[in-house]
Design a protein around this nucleic acid. Structure first.
Length: 886
RNA sequence: GGGCGUAUAGCUCAGUUGGUUAGAGCGCCACGUUGACAUCGUGGAGGUCACAGAUUCGAGUUCUGUUACGCCCACCA
């Protein structure tokens, strides 16, 4: 047999990766076509930000999608994975600003709108493909011909269409409302873009003097600098301490204004002094109070959160925090400070800028979500859309049932400009897909839309909507969505609403929420902490398959993952194990005729071969179930166990006997190995695409120019003809006996490399018959010079007593030519006897318990009885062994 | 203030509908470089399943409460 193509000793991932990804891509193997002959399976990628670089989070997310895509293709679906990137308005705009600044070039404000946007496009063309090329390194089978960007013309058209339709329905409106303002990005934000953090602050107690000079009110606030916007002080109308003051005026310190004392239930007598300053322009609650009492709304802030001239000359232009200190200093001088106490309270931070946001009154565009939410709630409630893990639906319902209007306008330039035009002279507003005629009279809205206003259309805009495309008919709704729970509101919920509203159909059927990845000490991964590994480094060091497999293997369902690069050793070692398994097979000769279908007489298979085939079939069943339930890690564990333990540790080792035997034996062994290995490669392909493709070719299972990704995925129950439950049990008992025999050797300090003799006393004639067929296998597995099988007790007369161990189908002895520590052996057996007796007592007690016998299922009782019998037999055997030592 | 999640071996985690003696990987100890693999093999040590109750013939698994940690939501001046 020629060994021309002998594989290298270890798997070299870089070679396979460099070879196969271009092959797949050039042969358009990832391309999804509208194909009525097949069922469709589609996924839309959660579009990464163009500014993004690949993180471990992306690796997990995209590996899962890739597994689903490759699995379904192999299961006979026409699959399409729609990829693309998101323009990420605020993030990209600030990134480009930073890069302009770093390059010493004129920034956004100097350039003006058009030139700045041109710069952003330049940047996007140059760097926006980074994450896409990094995804390729991972092996993702995206249909790159369909790659889209959320600001492509087609997608922009979808955005405008949606805006116009929602405007016409009256859902989208422009209004003056309390919004979240980011002083760094200088734009409004949606509620979802505000992150509340507990911070240490101060609670300031201040005197507001009564205008009539009769005293003062004590107000408590965490934000004294907003006092310039105060237009009232509220007390609770039922609060006897202050009730009589309602209607009087207080002098607002540091100003020449007087403001009224009002009665409003917003004032909580239990909190602070029971008096609360009312700043309608800068606090959501105060705004409502202001509306109830017709209070003036005084905005005292500039866009950058410095105070404006409504705060008076001395404070105008000061940053909010500087102003706070100065206000307190001035109040101190006036003797108006009662005290300051530390307080821990929640402060809203902007998601992107990571600075405290301001709440303030502003004209913005909003979308009323109430009606949109209804069918979207129903879609999940009715089970049309399923969440995995299911519990996220609770989070979803809670948010959806309390959904607020969505602030969709942003005061930035990079994004979809709102398709609204103002005719100032006539005081008219026009909203439409295109600019109105007579452009001179109309000026377009300066604001752009929230980035998510394009993302929420992704599942259909990416397929050509609003055109009625063949893709939409075939691939929509998509099947599975894989994303992180952190964007359930931002994206998932809104996509469901948009799908129901504009397509009249849910956008996807299943949503799998991935785990959040942390470092191995449990901290969130972040750039600033420097604990965010670069997946490309990992791929270079361990290989893409190793990274993919490891992260799936360690990712528990619905829990955080503790990740560190060294965890990838698991995947690397596993790929190498698989590699060497194939390498070993290849050393046995050319590929056989049995890698797809086993060409063998079922009755002619050895017990081990039947066991192997049954084991792989069982694993296929578990994997199938795991896929159905989105339990990817259990599929990975199943495969690991199958390859490493079942195939390599037991089957290959045992089968070496036959591979070194006669021609017929060898041929059959090789056939079974081919059959098993090709199944394993196909089972593993979705998880480890590179090494499996490489091996499928070098083993000769897949022709040049073809790909394993187009092979059929093994299905459970394919091998019923080889099934034999009795034999499987015997083989497993044989392996247990082997382990026991090895332990005897180890306990006697006999080196593994020294051949020894064993004697096995079979429990009955059937077991003896079976074991007699397995002598060569036993010799191989136990590294024995000889294994004698018999029904008689071990004959101690010739060579003295021997250490022994009890198994289900026999007792294995290790005769040692006189070197046995009788005391140790007795102690071991006595210990074992004690254990057996304990279990027997327990089982007997159970069986004597009438309620157990009456209430437990018959099967359980039967099992207990059988166990008792087996235990008693084993006990008897221990006793025999003990008496033999005397 | 509400909601959710987690607690099992030194570490990271499995443990499907309650059913003998609770598993894996890594780490640790001992032995082994036999012609697939030292990215390996064989054997071994290591756990009163967070705590307290309850249900049950039987609880790591179900229920209640407690503790600890984490996350989400909420207008706490």
């Amino acid at each position: 047999m020629s060994h021309i193509h002998e594989l290298p000793k270890a798997y070299v991932p870089a070679d396979a990766e460099a070879k196969w990804y271009p092959f797949w891509e050039e042969n358009k193997l990832f391309h999804g076509r509208v194909n009525p002959d097949k069922p469709a399976y589609s996924i839309v990628i959660p579009p990464p930000n163009v500014t993004g670089i690949l993180t471990i989070g992306h690796v997990l997310n995209n590996t899962l999608q890739d597994i689903l895509i490759r699995y379904h293709r192999m299961r006979g679906y026409e699959v399409c994975w729609f990829p693309g990137t998101d323009h990420a308005g605020i993030a990209t705009e600030s990134k480009v600003q930073k890069s302009l600044k770093a390059a010493g070039q004129p920034g956004r404000d100097e350039l003006g709108r058009e030139k700045f946007i041109a710069k952003v496009w330049d940047w996007k063309e140059k760097y926006g493909g980074t994450i896409i090329s990094q995804l390729r390194k991972l092996g993702t089978a995206c249909d790159w011909e369909r790659e889209r960007f959320t600001m492509d013309e087609g997608l922009s058209r979808a955005v405008r269409k949606v805006f116009v339709e929602l405007y016409k329905k009256g859902y989208i409106y422009r209004g003056q409302r309390m919004i979240n303002w980011c002083p760094v990005s200088k734009t409004a934000l949606s509620d979802e873009e505000v992150i509340y953090k507990e911070v240490d602050g101060k609670f300031y107690h201040i005197k507001y003097p009564l205008a009539d000079g009769s005293g003062f009110l004590e107000v408590a606030t965490t934000r004294p600098e907003t006092m310039f916007g105060d237009t009232a002080v509220a007390v609770n109308p039922d609060d006897p301490r202050y009730r009589h003051l309602i209607g009087k005026m207080v002098k607002l310190p540091l100003t020449d204004r007087e403001i009224p004392i009002i009665g409003d239930e917003h004032a909580d007598p239990e909190k602070g002094s029971g008096c609360v300053k009312i700043t309608p322009a800068h606090d959501p609650n105060d705004f409502l109070v202001g509306q109830r009492h017709n209070l003036e709304v005084i905005n005292i802030m500039n866009a950058d959160a410095s105070l404006n001239d409504r705060a008076g000359k001395e404070f105008s232009g000061l940053d909010r925090y500087a102003a706070r200190d100065k206000v307190m200093a001035e109040l101190e001088k006036l003797g108006l400070v009662i005290g300051v106490e530390p307080i821990r309270h929640a402060v809203g931070f902007s998601e992107r800028g990571d600075v405290p946001i301001e709440t303030l009154i502003s004209y913005q565009w909003f979308c009323n979500m109430k009606e949109l939410a209804k069918p979207a709630i129903d879609a999940v409630e009715s089970g049309k859309i399923k969440f995995y893990p299911e519990r996220w639906s609770k989070t979803y319902f809670h948010w959806m049932e309390n959904i607020q209007d969505w602030c969709i306008s942003r005061q930035i330039w990079w994004g979809h400009r709102i398709p609204a035009w103002y005719n100032d002279a006539a005081g008219e507003v026009y909203v439409g897909m295109e600019a109105p005629s007579a452009p001179g009279k109309w000026r377009q809205e300066e604001d752009v839309l929230d980035t998510w206003f394009s993302s929420w259309l992704w599942p259909f805009s990416i397929q050509g909507w609003p055109d009625d495309t063949a893709e939409l008919k075939y691939f929509y709704p998509t099947c599975d969505l894989v994303t992180g729970p952190d964007i359930i509101f931002f994206w998932v919920a809104r996509m469901i609403m948009a799908g129901c509203e504009f397509m009249g159909e849910i956008p996807f059927r299943n949503v799998y929420f991935t785990s959040i990845i942390r470092d191995d000490t449990g901290r969130k991964l972040s750039k600033s902490l420097g604990n965010s590994p670069d997946p490309l480094d990992v791929i270079a060091e361990y290989g893409a398959d190793a990274l993919r497999f490891s992260i799936i293997y360690i990712a528990p369902v619905g829990m955080d993952i503790r990740y560190s690069n060294d965890k990838c050793e698991l995947g690397r070692n596993f790929a190498n194990k698989l590699w060497n398994c194939c390498r070993f097979r290849q050393m046995q000769g050319e590929v056989s005729d049995s890698f797809r279908k086993l060409n063998a007489d079922p009755s002619g298979l050895t017990a081990d071969e039947k066991w192997m085939i049954a084991s792989i079939d069982a694993a296929v069943g578990s994997i199938e179930t795991a896929f159905r339930e989105f339990r990817f890690h259990s599929a990975a564990h199943e495969l690991y166990e199958l390859v490493w333990s079942k195939v390599c540790d037991w089957f290959v080792e045992s089968e070496k006997v036959r591979l070194r035997g006669g021609e017929a034996e060898k041929l059959q062994a090789v056939r079974v190995l081919d059959y098993v290995i090709f199944k394993v490669l196909r089972l593993l392909h979705p998880f480890m695409p590179f090494v499996t493709e490489e091996l499928a070719h070098s083993m000769g299972y897949v022709e040049d120019g073809e790909s394993i990704m187009n092979e059929r995925y093994p299905e459970p129950g394919e091998d019923g003809v080889f099934a034999d439950a009795e034999i499987v049990k015997y083989v497993e008992s044989k392996f247990a006996l082997v382990s026991a025999g090895r332990a005897l050797r180890s306990n006697c300090d006999i080196p593994d490399n020294r051949k020894v003799r064993y004697y096995i006393k079979a429990v009955d004639a059937a077991a003896a018959d079976f074991l007699n067929t397995e002598v060569e296998s036993l010799k191989m597995l136990m590294n024995a010079s000889d294994v004698e099988i018999g029904l008689a007790d071990y004959d101690a007369a010739g060579s003295g007593a021997a250490p022994s161990a009890i198994g289900d189908i026999g007792t294995v002895y290790l005769p040692l030519a006189g070197v046995i520590d009788l005391d140790a052996e007795r102690a071991k057996l006595k210990k074992q006897r004690g254990e057996f007796e304990g279990w027997i007592r327990g089982t007997e007690a159970k069986l004597r318990n009438e309620r157990f016998v009456a209430k437990a299922p018959a099967q359980v009782v039967e099992d207990a009885k059988r166990q008792l019998e087996e235990l008693k037999q084993k006990l008897e055997r221990v006793n025999e062994l003990l008496s033999a030592l005397d």
